[in-house]
Structures are given as structure tokens and as C-alpha cells.
């Protein structure tokens, strides 16, 4: 896949799913995110790139309020999901996380069976009415995670016994099993070999059909391959946000250009 096709693919013209306005995040005295505004559109893959420590993960974790679990973390500003403020007092973070799923950097399957891993989310949210319902949900999720064929004969063996790439696809299947609207992925391929990475990237492209995907990556090639929109973070600031093709070919900010050409980071 070359850059030309990336540009051609372009971003779908679609409405905004998540919008962030004036977001600031502090860890105690550390100012990790500085006044970030961004609109993430529906059924697109949005990539966050930038040197490590620039706040990509921090910002991503604001979108499903995972930062709530860190005592010293303080989030200010407004983040809206479908026009509703997710930091509103009436919003239950537990319910929010059912709508905004997450895949982590290191594959983290539960030390349970493959089946139980995938069934856990639907079970706690009461998505299945019967055992056969649940079987269907698990199968559909594993198919979407592009791992069904590899595990269909050993659904009841433990998820931690899979290879790294399989584990990560299992985690993706687990995340999509709850039918979230937005899927957040924090460097999902950083622990994977090139073949597994290619499989996961292909998967992300397919997931775009049904989900709004936000992916953090430190690989610019990966951002170029999978995303329609790219946001470049630097030292806690959102430096540039735009169509992936434009960011990689005609960056407006000199910092973006230096990063892309390998001079920062």
C-alpha cells in the first residue's frame, strides 16, 4: 500500500462521534495534556502519533475515563460522545466504558478460557439471554477479531496460552463483543511481530465498518496504513490534526514535519 492510495481512500464525510474541547490533564503537578481540541468522526480510524511521553495514551484514556482510576490524575475541559458530556456527573463511567471499548498495549487476556474471556463483557452487561445466545455472541466476536478459525477447537483452553498476536486479537474480540460504539487502541501492535501486526492492521481496517476506531501508534507507517485521520501530539499539545494523507505529505507545522522526517522522537 503506498501513500497515493492512502490519499485516495480519504476520510469518509461523516458526523463527529467524539469531540474534545479545551482538554487539560494533570498528573499531580505534571501538565500532561495542554488544551487539546479534536473531533473524531464516525466510522473512521483516527491515529494519534507523536514521540513517547507526549500524552497520547493519557488523552486516549480520557475518552473512556480510564484516568478516573488514577488518583492523582485531573481532567478538565469538555469531551462529548454523541453530543453528551462524558464527564457529566450523571454519566456512569461503567456505562461509558461499555460504549467506548479499549484494547491495551500489552495483550492482557484474563487467565480464563478463551470463551470466558470473550463472554465476560456481554455477561456483565446482560447482553445474552441464553447460553446459545452467548455462544453466538462469542463466535461473532471471535470472527470479527479474525481469530475464530485458530481457536474454534479450543474455546475452553486458557486464553493466556495463546501466542502474543493471537492474544491481542483475542483482546480485540473481547472488546468488540460488548458492541461498543468507539474502540480505543493503545499501541495494539507494539508487542507483536510483523506478521501478527499485519493481521491486526487488516482487522482494524475491517472494524471501521462498524466502529469508530482511535489508535495510538508510534509507527508512522502504521498510521499511514490504517488511518483516515491523524493527530500529531508533541509535549502534551495537539500540534496538527487532519487527513492522514495530508499530514504525511504536506504537514503544515514544522514540528510535524521534523517528526515525520525523523528529526524528533
Amino acid at each position: 500500500m503506498n501513500d497515493m492510495s492512502t490519499i485516495e481512500r480519504g476520510a469518509k464525510l461523516s458526523e463527529t462521534k467524539v469531540s474534545a474541547r479545551g482538554v487539560n490533564v494533570h498528573y499531580g503537578d505534571t501538565h500532561a495534556i495542554k488544551d487539546v481540541n479534536v473531533d473524531i468522526s464516525n466510522n473512521n480510524v483516527t491515529a494519534f502519533i507523536g514521540p513517547s511521553g507526549c500524552g497520547k495514551s493519557t488523552f486516549l484514556r480520557c475518552l473512556n475515563r480510564m484516568n478516573d482510576t488514577i488518583d492523582i490524575c485531573r481532567v478538565d475541559g469538555a469531551i462529548q460522545l454523541d453530543g453528551q458530556d462524558i464527564y457529566d456527573k450523571r454519566v456512569d463511567p461503567v456505562q461509558l466504558r461499555a460504549r467506548v471499548g479499549m484494547v491495551f498495549q500489552k495483550p492482557n487476556p484474563f487467565p480464563k478460557s478463551i470463551y470466558d474471556n470473550v463472554a465476560y463483557g456481554p455477561k456483565i452487561h446482560g447482553l445474552a439471554k441464553s447460553k446459545s445466545d452467548m455462544d453466538d455472541i462469542v463466535e461473532r466476536a471471535l470472527r470479527r477479531g479474525a481469530i475464530w478459525d485458530e481457536v474454534k477447537d479450543r474455546l475452553h483452553s486458557t486464553g493466556t496460552g495463546l501466542s502474543g498476536g493471537q492474544q491481542q486479537r483475542l483482546c480485540i474480540a473481547r472488546a468488540v463483543a460488548t458492541e461498543p460504539e468507539v474502540l480505543l487502541m493503545d499501541e495494539p501492535c507494539s508487542a507483536l511481530d510483523p506478521i501478527a501486526t499485519a493481521q491486526v492492521e487488516e482487522l482494524i481496517d475491517e472494524l471501521r465498518e462498524n466502529f469508530t476506531v482511535v489508535i495510538v501508534t508510534h509507527s508512522m507507517q502504521q498510521a499511514a496504513r490504517v488511518s483516515q485521520k491523524t493527530a500529531f501530539f508533541h509535549l502534551g499539545e495537539l500540534v496538527e490534526f487532519g487527513e492522514t494523507g495530508q499530514i504525511f505529505t504536506k504537514p503544515e507545522d514544522p514540528r510535524t514535519e521534523s517528526y515525520i522526517t525523523g528529526r524528533i522522537g
Binding site: 480510564m66 456505562q95 461509558l96 466504558r97 479499549m102 491495551f104 484474563f110 465476560y120 456483565i124
Partner: peptide, 11 residues
């Protein structure tokens, strides 16, 4: 990571 996995699923 186990806690995060479960929290991320909405537990």
C-alpha cells in the same frame, strides 16, 4: 493489566 482489562470492558 488484569484490572485495566476488566475496567475497560465496563466492569
Amino acid at each position: 493489566s488484569i484490572r485495566e482489562a476488566a475496567l475497560g470492558l465496563g466492569a
